[in-house]
Amino acid sequence: MSGPSVTEEPKSARADALFALAMMAVALLTMWGVRNQPRAPYDPVGAAAVPFWTAVAVLALASVLLVRVLLKHSTRGAAMSLFTMSEAVDDSYAVVPRFSVYAVVLSLFYVALIPLAGFAAASVLFMLVFGAALCDRTPRSLAIVAVVALLGGVGLDYGFRALLIDLP
């Protein structure tokens, strides 16, 4: 593993390339999706035209981005923006990327659980697990997480049902 000054550039270049490829995929999907759109009687261009040409623009711009990555032109910082600001970096604590992964995975499980277990139960469980994963694991924090999860889950469920919002 090399130091941050060396990895920073390739990393952002890789992210840019992935972004460009993902956008191309979405554009191609759109073009494929509108391929059989019929012409409408009152409409000179039809329902397919605007999505199709938007997708063409996406393909063109994504290619520009890819070419720039391949030519190793920087796409970050002062090179291309009219305004750039350096953001203050606070390094007094550890950034834990793992937590964001937890957040993504737990959210997906939570949504999948709602139709199975009902809104209140799923919410309490989600808040318990997510809160416990993020907090500093002292007994006091865990206790607060538990209280917040129970009160929050049940309270929100009750409160919004009272507002006649249909919760599963």
Partner: peptide, 28 residues
């Protein structure tokens, strides 16, 4: 902030996301 090309791509992506569904003009 950042690159114009990426900003534009982001905007166009937003446009693509808005297209699925009933087309307002033709009802298709």
């Amino acid at each position: 902030q950042g690159s114009v090309v990426k900003g534009l791509l982001s905007g166009l992506f937003g446009m693509l996301v808005s297209y699925p569904g009933i087309d307002e003009t033709s009802g298709q």
